[in-house]
Nucleic acid binder design. Structure first.
Length: 823
RNA sequence: GCGGACGUGGCGGAAUUGGCAGACGCGCUGGACUUAGGAUCCAGUGACUUCGGUUGUAAGGGUUCAAAUCCCUUCGUCCGCACCA
């Protein structure tokens, strides 16, 4: 046998698998389906190590499940719309489509060089008209169901990207893509009504037992459900009512002021009549001038201006000053809050700064708080009410209910559920996205593009300049059109859709990628979906994963599919880091997958990445570690070369009793390995320990490198070893398999272990005295507790160690140890 | 501030149900083979040690016959949210 040469064999088998269409998938009702999916990439042009890790994990899962008898769907595609393609157009004059397609071509080449078992017949590219046609169709579905609407709102604007962003896409006041600062702008924009599904998105998190808890908690916090009371206060001087929302109705008797967001409508009304109008306006403008971070950081100084007007607390008739402040959010609740300095730390700071009255309404049971001694608000959710009329003395939680009931029976308030989650802003002022299929007619207003006219194609006569308008508005051929209803002159919506919409349904398209009548066939989707195992980075914990869940629920309600959640199990892989830092060009610590594959082969790259760390933890890149993986594959190659003649002469069905003692040990290790590797793959995604067990097996086989081995055992070992290696290192496994066996190793059934082969007659147990290991002895494996005790107590070593002591207690744990407690 | 995760040799990590801490790999040390070795093979490798042992899983305390694992306190690292009333 020649020496191991990955460059030769990997190319050879990749070509063979491709020409055989070896991983083509079709519906087969007789077999259990298994859908494994890695998050599809943005076509930046080159794979990075994070991709390699992601796909290596997915490929192991896919190949293992195939061998375990499942009908496996394992597709790949590209999230191909997005800003970088457009930047290439701006900077280098390349067409976004050309840039994107040539990047895709290169990435597919790299993916194929990894030896991944994808069904390429199902590939999707979201930027192609045969895909975005259906993205537009789904927009129309949402529209028809009342879930897509346009409204003027204060939205997040990123100057650098020249577009608006959804809330989820603003990270600490900065753009998720380019990290530049985001500020607010009033614009008419399209939204998806994700808030209609807030309750279900929250409740169904409980169904996602196969998701990391971390991700569920992040989504729970993002949705941010709260229960409370909404009620109105009269503003007699203006003949107006002011509504507020609170989760702490128990403190309502302590209201001493009202805090309004500068954007609150009442502020405008006050400015029309107030002598202080100029001052108030100036304050509002100053707050508007603050950045998103300054305005929303809890660190920021709380500021405000008294309007000179008052409202009346309906619970006790107390007058409360109306203030405009910088710390109330305009778009949460009613944009106004009740100020209770004694029960809320922010209100406390505000009131003490401006000398506003403080009334105590809650104190710990059996304790008397004194305002003059207090240096902060009493914010514990525990205690008894004071100064609260007929509710005085009531326990806090009871009081919350009673006070809400009071407001409801008096008719000035009601129970209310609020969410932190906002509607999803989906329009983008960019070119390289799916056009929003809407036509504006002067007579008929906003109209959907008729279904039969879809797709609304992206035009090519556009200028790529960044401003507040989409480049699409520079295309005359695109912009001008006829109204679908009355036929008169009209114009198109020139914004495109957030690319997160494209990625919210791609996993459904894989089930039926060539359908030209519908986005997908209901039966096909119901066969393959939901995704059994989804694999990707934690960075999508909210964004993509929340949006996809929302899409799934809407499509279910539209009777297009039959289940509630898109991804049954989720695996969030860790990052690939080097020298303690994330790989990045600016740090100059990037390792190129292509170089590694050229030098060592894809099998080595895959093996290292899977072995070096548990899948969900960060992985420290190590060049020495890669060499170690390469060394291991050479070791596998060499031992099977040494065993070559024996393997060819052996037979897998044989009598174990013909093995000598050394061979029996290998036989037992072999079956223990099968058990361990099977469990690690099937139940735990513990690829690192599965590989370490395989290394131990190969080490055990090396015992026979210089002495004869029973041919039957050699054949059995080779058969099992190659089958177990196949999911991890598909090329070398296939190559070695072809030397000794028939067909493709990847089409074989997964190995089974023989329970009886694992059983040992004699095992080593530990003798402990007071919990400390004092000796190790061999005993029969099936020895019961009392026999173990007796055996151990009779040992000379035990007698020696317990001679002048009293034995208090003896604990025997079968197959493990005997612990003797002495005094 | 709130929420979550984590802390084990020189390094990556293992210990799945409370039961022999450090599997496997990297690195290192020694040896074999060799003209040569950055190939391969073999052996060793937590620390301390008077070679009997002692000690050891961030620190301290607790539960237990027995704790890396369970409980409490403290420290540290990382992640998420960050005025959501």
């Amino acid at each position: 046998m020649d020496k191991y040469s990955p460059q030769e064999i990997e190319k050879k088998w990749q070509e063979k698998w491709e020409s055989d269409d070896a991983y083509k998938t079709e519906i087969d009702e007789s077999r259990q389906k298994y859908y494994v999916l890695e998050m599809f990439p943005y076509p930046s042009g080159n794979l990075h190590m994070g991709h390699v890790r992601n796909y290596s994990i997915g490929d192991v899962v896919a190949r293992y499940r195939m061998m375990a008898g499942y009908n496996v769907l394992h597709p790949m595609g590209f999230d191909a719309f997005g800003m970088p393609a457009e930047n290439a157009a701006i900077e280098h004059g390349v067409k976004p489509s050309d840039w994107t397609f040539s990047n895709i071509k290169n990435m597919i080449r790299q993916q194929k060089a990894m030896g991944l078992a994808y069904d390429w017949n199902r590939e999707v590219e979201t930027c192609r008209a045969d895909y975005y046609r259906w993205t537009q169709w789904l927009f129309e579905l949402f529209y028809k169901r009342g879930l897509a609407y346009k409204k003027e709102a204060s939205v997040n604007w990123c100057d650098k990207c020249g577009t608006v962003l959804a809330n989820e896409q603003v990270i600490e006041g900065k753009c998720w893509r380019c990290d530049s600062e985001v500020h607010k702008k009033n614009l008419a924009q399209w939204f998806f009504k994700i808030t209609d599904y807030a309750d279900e998105l929250l409740a169904d998190l409980n169904k996602l037992e196969g998701w990391p808890n971390r991700v569920r908690i992040m989504q729970e916090n993002w949705i941010g459900r709260s229960e409370g009371l909404e009620f109105e206060l009269d503003v007699p001087e203006l003949n107006e009512k002011l509504a507020v929302y609170t989760t702490r109705p128990d403190t309502a008797f302590g209201i001493t002021f009202m805090a309004l967001a500068p954007e609150h409508p009442l502020v405008e009304k006050i400015c029309k009549v107030s002598p202080k109008a100029a001052e108030i306006k100036a304050f509002c403008e100053r707050v508007h001038g603050q950045s998103e971070i300054e305005r929303t950081s809890s660190e920021s100084e709380k500021e405000g201006i008294f309007t000179g007007y008052y409202c009346i607390n309906p619970f006790n008739g107390h007058k409360a000053q109306i203030w405009v402040t910088n710390y109330v959010l305009a778009d949460y609740g009613t944009g106004a809050i009740m100020g209770v300095p004694s029960g809320d730390q922010r209100d406390w700071m505000f009131a003490t700064k401006y000398g506003i009255e403080i009334i105590l309404t809650l104190q710990p049971k059996g304790q008397q708080l004194k305002l003059e001694d207090m240096k902060a608000a009493y914010v514990e959710k525990d205690g008894e009410l004071v100064n609260s009329g007929k509710f005085t003395g009531m326990e806090m939680h009871k009081a919350i209910k009673a006070i809400i009931d009071e407001a409801e029976s008096q008719g000035f308030g009601r129970r209310k559920v609020n969410y932190r989650l906002r509607d999803w802003l989906i329009s983008r002022q960019r070119y390289w996205g799916a056009p929003i299929p809407i036509i504006y007619c002067d007579k008929c207003g906003e109209q959907l593009v008729p279904e039969e006219d879809l797709p609304v194609l992206l035009p090519e006569d556009v200028e790529f300049k960044q401003g507040t308008l989409s480049p699409l508005s520079t295309s005359k051929s695109f912009n001008e059109c006829k109204c679908p209803k009355c036929g008169s002159h009209a114009h198109r919506e020139t914004d495109t859709m957030d690319t997160f919409i494209c990625s919210s349904w791609y996993y459904l398209r894989y089930a039926d990628p060539h359908n030209d009548k519908l986005p997908f066939d209901r039966d096909k989707v119901n066969y393959w979906n939901p995704v059994d195992q989804y694999i990707g980075g934690i960075e999508h914990a909210i964004l993509h994963l929340l949006y996809s869940r929302f899409f799934t629920k809407v499509l279910r309600d539209a009777k297009m599919l039959d289940y509630d959640e898109p991804f049954t199990n989720l695996l969030t892989q860790g990052m690939v880091i080097k020298d303690g830092k994330k790989m990045s060009k600016s740090l100059g610590n990037v390792v190129s997958p292509e170089e590694i594959i050229d030098k060592y082969g894809a099998d080595t790259a895959r093996l290292f990445i899977l072995f070096a760390s548990p899948v969900d933890r960060d992985l420290d890149w190590s060049d020495e570690g890669v060499q170690g993986s390469f060394r291991f594959l050479n070791r596998v190659w060499r031992i099977l070369d040494i065993f070559g003649e024996a393997i060819k002469n052996g037979s897998i069905n044989y009598d174990i009793n013909t093995l000598n003692d050394e061979e029996k040990i290998l036989h037992r290790i072999l079956h223990k390995t099968i058990k361990k590797v099977t469990e690690d793959l099937r139940d735990r995604f513990a690829f690192n320990t599965a590989i370490s067990t395989l290394m131990e097996l190969v080490n055990a086989m090396h015992v026979f490198q210089n002495k004869p081995i029973n041919p039957n055992l050699a054949r059995e070992s080779a058969d099992a070893l190659l089958k177990m290696l196949a999911p991890f290192v598909p090329h070398i496994a296939e190559e070695l398999w072809s030397h000794f066996f028939e067909g493709s190793v990847h089409k074989q059934n997964w190995v089974k272990f023989d329970e009886s082969a694992i059983v040992e007659d004699e095992i080593e147990i530990v003798l402990q005295i007071n919990g400390k290991v004092r000796d190790r002895i061999k005993v029969a494996a099936d020895l019961d507790k009392s026999a173990m005790e007796k055996t151990v107590l009779d040992l000379p070593r035990t007698k020696e160690l317990t001679e002048d002591k009293t034995i208090v207690k003896v604990i025997a744990v079968p197959k493990k140890l005997v612990n003797i407690v002495v005094k």
